[in-house]
Design a protein around this nucleic acid. Structure first.
Ligand SMILES: [Mn+2]
Ligand SMILES: [Mn+2]
Length: 287
DNA sequence: GATAGTG
DNA sequence: CACTATCAACGCGGT
DNA sequence: ACCGCG
């Protein structure tokens, strides 16, 4: 894979270059690709580095090479949209060479775009939140998943929060999963209303952590495991064992720490699909 | 980042 | 040639 | 249809 301008600085604070970004993705590819395969992508590109202008890109550029996989999926409200899908290392490195710093993925795959195989609740803390409160909220989400028969997997987002994901058997429709995720979020927030909220509007959240279920809507995305974040520190989204959460920071895994981690430890999310649960049965147990 | 257009 | 302009998302709820 | 939000 030919990379233009590998010495261009992308993270001024860390002195990381575009070449370093590509090397990150080469390193994480074995752990990351299983979480990308078959999923429409949203790219977050920063061709002049993370402190310059960046943008979300969902549709393939006209000039993207023909060997890159693209897929047409229905658009809500009619018609179709074309998306990039990254199934292999060459594609990952090509997209990194296009200055894609962040990779975001759908919660369903192209084979069944309207049947999510993941449910995700996203914890978005306001400035100044105690990380202990964030960890407690993540564990409570895990416990509520367990009550309805769903397995829970946590990742540090590399930004300011955590995600708690549940693998699904991809039999329920998007809108059913969205409603289930909202019901779970509301239940978690109602149990600790001083610290948690599901209010979409910022002016109604106060000082509380936003338990965000909106990631479960059609064509919505969450940051892919092992994606870099376009923020100072160059942390990555990092799947964790629950036993690690007690000492975890959302942006705790920069490039060096992540590389050492992957050399030492399996992807905690590897094989998660084998624990897929049913959204329909979860609804029944929800009561 | 890549392309098309201008001087 | 150097330089500049232009482009690169979506869904959902509320109003 | 537009806004706020992620
Ligand atoms: Mn540029
Ligand atoms: Mn978030």
């Amino acid at each position: 894979m030919k990379i233009s301008r590998p010495d261009k600085v992308f993270y001024p604070g860390e002195g990381l270059t575009k070449g370093d970004v590509v090397e990150h993705y080469r390193t994480v590819a074995p752990a990351m690709l299983p979480h990308l395969r078959g999923r429409p992508l949203t790219l977050r590109r920063y061709p002049d580095g993370i402190e310059a202008e960046g943008w979300f890109q969902k549709h393939p550029g006209e000039y993207f090479p023909s060997w890159l996989r693209t897929v047409r999926v229905p658009r809500r409200g009619g018609g179709t949209d074309e998306y990039v899908v990254c199934d292999d290392e060459d594609s990952l490195l090509y997209l990194a060479g296009q200055a894609t710093v962040e990779f975001h993925v759908w919660l369903s795959t192209v084979d069944a775009p309207e049947k999510p195989d993941l449910l995700v609740l996203d914890l978005d803390p306001p400035e100044g939140t105690d990380v202990a409160d964030l960890r407690t909220a993540a564990r409570r989400i895990r416990d509520h998943y367990a009550e309805v028969g769903l397995a829970a997997y946590v990742q540090a987002t590399g930004g300011r929060g955590f995600h708690v994901a549940a693998p699904l058997d991809a039999t329920a429709a998007t809108d059913v999963v969205l409603e289930l995720s909202r019901a779970l979020a509301d239940r978690v927030a109602a149990a600790d209303p001083d610290r948690l909220t599901t209010a979409q509007r910022k002016d109604q959240r106060g000082d509380r952590i936003f338990v965000d279920a909106n990631r479960n809507g059609y064509a919505q995305t969450f940051v892919a495991p092992y994606s870099l974040r376009a923020r100072p520190g160059a942390a990555s989204a990092t799947p964790l064992d629950w036993t690690e959460l007690g000492k975890a920071e959302p942006d705790g895994w920069g490039p060096g720490k992540l590389r050492r981690r992957l050399a030492r430890k399996d992807d905690p999310w590897r094989g998660m699909e084998k624990n897929a649960g049913s959204a329909e049965k979860a609804w029944e147990k929800f009561g």
